[in-house]
Amino acid sequence: MEFIQFHPTGLYPLGILISEAARGEGAVLLNGPGERFMERYAPTIKDLAARDVVSRAILLEVRAGRGIAGKEYVHLDLSPVGEENIRDKLWEIASFARIYLGIDPVRQPIPVAPTCHYVMGGIPTDADGRVISDESGSVVAGIFAAGECACVFVHGANRLGCNSLLDLLVFGRRAGRAMRDEAPRVQTPASKADPVKAVGEDLADLHERRGQERIDTLRRRMQSLMMDHGSVFRTDAGLNVAIDGIRGLKEQFSRVAILDKGRTFNYELMEAVELRHQLDLCEVILTSALHRKESRGSHFREDFPARDDGAYLKHTLVFDRPSGPEVRYRDVSITRFQPEKRVY
């Protein structure tokens, strides 16, 4: 779960995705002084380098005071694409720039900054969507996952553009077929407890809460902790601060107030449920990131900037324990493509 992809070009400040298609058609990134800075970070493929490389490059420019007007974004200049191509091939991107910034991307550059985009990790599954429960790949009978919630281990530390279609079209289909074939045969052991009742009681308990803490405040704090310490750049010290912070928020969450006592479209209750899951997942992400003392794909540790295949050419698995998340590793099966050094 430590592998969270930041897309380099989110419309600033909303974070709306300006897809790679723009740079694919010839758009370029420019910093405050107007330099095409990707030439320095990736001399051969420049603006088309992998997402993690471009995201880091943008933030390094910003750190060095070379953002636009010294602020925390750079410019994406679409003028090399040409008016006709923008209209025909980048309609949606142009419409976002017009609606949200009131600018015409044919003539004016779009302000962009890295934005959280995709989670490479997820519920571990085999290639047919069967959920697995340990390092040896034991299957949990009758449970399947597919899509971004799942992790089929194909994206490694860094998904390539368009490859989320694999999760949807390929593995979604394979999971569907496996379910069709296995459903008649699966013998799910009868559960002693009534799981639906337990969930109902849990929700009712949450709904009743009349504490002092507000969901909105806790969520904002969680968001800043994750952006400050768990996003594009990570360090041991920062991750520890964030883990402590998230644990504190979990504790505060137990005193949350749900003011809407209604039962119809109660978004406050829904967001409380979401926030509780988010806090758990934040802890999993941060703990996985803390344990991986190397940099690989989307996971970049400033204190360990090199890749360390000897120790960490492995998949992280996290187990829920009463004392907190426990990190273990699973071997990577390498078939046709050996890992190589990444050079641009």
């Binding site: 909303l14 976002f96 609606i99 909105d216 749900i258 119809t264 109660n266 978004y267 406050e268």
Partner: peptide
């Protein structure tokens, strides 16, 4: 409004950008 003043207000939303 929903987060800071009146949590009982209901409306659907998801992506935030059309």
């Amino acid at each position: 409004i929903r987060w800071e003043q009146d949590p009982t207000l209901s409306f659907r939303m998801s992506c935030g950008h059309g």
